[in-house]
Every structure is written in C-alpha cells, then in structure tokens.
C-alpha cells in the first residue's frame, strides 16, 4: 500500500498503482481532465507508465462553469 495526497485528500492505494489505475478507480477515463504529479504536468501518453509512490501529491483538474 502507499499513501498519497489526491486533490488535497489523503488516500490509500495499492502498490504498483499507475495514474491510469487511479483514473480508472475514479471513473475518469476519457473525461476531459489534466493531471499534475508532484507539481509537474503529466502528458496523457505517460498515464500508464507513471507509477505512484508514497507521499506523492496528485492534482486532477477539469473544466467547471466560470465567467
């Protein structure tokens, strides 16, 4: 298990969990989202190869209503 911070909340994930796995867990595959991993933007093509480790900080953002 690993403890990560996702959008400001601490969550537990399995070991060898990729960003792609995380998106699957939250039903976010094929949604218009962008991801920051420890402050660095991760391009979509790297979602599968980017594995998460203890204390990682992940931000998942999307578009909401705004003026």
């Amino acid at each position: 298990m690993a403890k990560i911070q996702l959008n400001g909340k601490k969550i537990l994930i399995k070991s060898n969990f990729s960003i792609q796995d995380l998106l699957n867990k939250y039903n976010l595959i094929n949604k218009k989202i962008a991801i920051e991993h420890n402050g660095i933007i991760i391009p979509k093509i790297n979602f599968k190869k980017k594995y998460l480790k203890n204390n990682d900080k992940i931000e998942i953002v999307h578009f909401i209503g705004g003026g």
């Binding site: 999307h62 909401i64 003026g67």
Partner: peptide, 10 residues
Amino acid sequence: VTVAVRRVNI
C-alpha cells in the same frame, strides 16, 4: 464560452 479550471470532486 469561458470555463474555469478546478479540482475534480473525487
């Protein structure tokens, strides 16, 4: 149309 960027509600 304009849109804002915010955290996804996980």
